[in-house]
Computed example of a mutant assay.
Amino acid sequence: MPTPESAELMQLFYALGYLGQASIVVPIVVGFRRRQQLAPAPRGIFYCCLMWLVIMACGEFARLAWHYNVVIWDALEILEMWFIGVAYHRVLRFRLRRYFLPLGILYTAFALLDTFVLHGLMLPITYTTVLKSVLIIALTLLYFEQMLRELRNVRLERDPMFVISVALLLYYAGTVVAFIMRAYFIDQNALLQIQKVYAVNSVLNLVMHGLIARGFWLAGRQPQLAVEPLTAATAQQPA
């Protein structure tokens, strides 16, 4: 039987979970206001935010109506990878872009196998979650490498896609271990530990949504130079 302290902690975790989900409205509002200035890649992330909102609403409705929403979250694992993959396909200029479509098809096939065979329809597809996190982390790192190769003279914290990539990297690197532990806690029926996992996810959701909103807000604005160009006047000044 839960103690009063654990019951209060559970209520706090539930409230934090709802706050983390509701925070998706922030990047959606900012992205909608800046939609005319969004480049193709950030626009793809904006559509991903809209998808997140729809899936979260459907998942919450299914939980309240039927006490079952595992399949909806399984669908999220597939859709998330496609939306983010398309966004990075538009911004990355590596030759491996040609393999994005077959990789996406293979990923979807594995996710369906995980859903119907490996984990079934009653458990979260942990293997797919780990694979998705690894792939998205790889995409963000490829984007960082591309920026280093280009050596653009701009402040990175003012670049919309860089800020969005930091948001995605923080979230998926921070939650992959938590979601692996979630499967173990579900097997052990450890409800409090499961809620702790979701609390970690909620905090990282808040961070990710805030950074994505900032990335949308920066879209179309004049980038600031990291190093001011050397003018003739400054070049003639004595050392």
Rank of each mutant, 00 (worst) to 15 (best):
R63T: 15
V54H: 00
H67D: 15
C49G: 09
R43F: 05
W66F: 14
A57V: 13
M56W: 15
M51C: 03
Q37E: 12
A62T: 10
I55N: 13
W66V: 15
A65P: 06
G31K: 03
H67P: 14
L38H: 01
A57Q: 12
I45E: 03
V54G: 00
I45N: 02
C58D: 08
V70T: 15
F61N: 10
L50V: 10
A39E: 12
R43M: 06
C49H: 09
M51A: 06
G31D: 03
C58W: 13
V29K: 06
W52A: 06
N69P: 12
G44P: 02
Q36M: 08
V30W: 03
V70K: 11
N69V: 05
R43S: 04
A57E: 10
I45W: 02
R63S: 13
A39K: 11
R43G: 01
P40Q: 11
Y68V: 04
Q37H: 13
C49W: 08
L53M: 14
R34V: 04
V30K: 04
F32P: 02
A62P: 03
R34F: 03
L53C: 10
A65Q: 12
R34D: 03
G44E: 02
V54Y: 00
I55E: 10
V70N: 15
I45V: 13
F61V: 13
F61W: 14
A62H: 10
I55P: 08
G59F: 00
V29F: 09
R43H: 04
V30C: 06
G31V: 02
F32E: 07
L64F: 08
C49L: 13
Y68F: 04
F46C: 01
R63M: 13
V30A: 09
P42H: 04
I45A: 03
C48H: 06
C49Y: 05
R33Y: 04
Y68A: 12
Y68L: 03
R33S: 02
W66Q: 14
G59Q: 05
G31E: 01
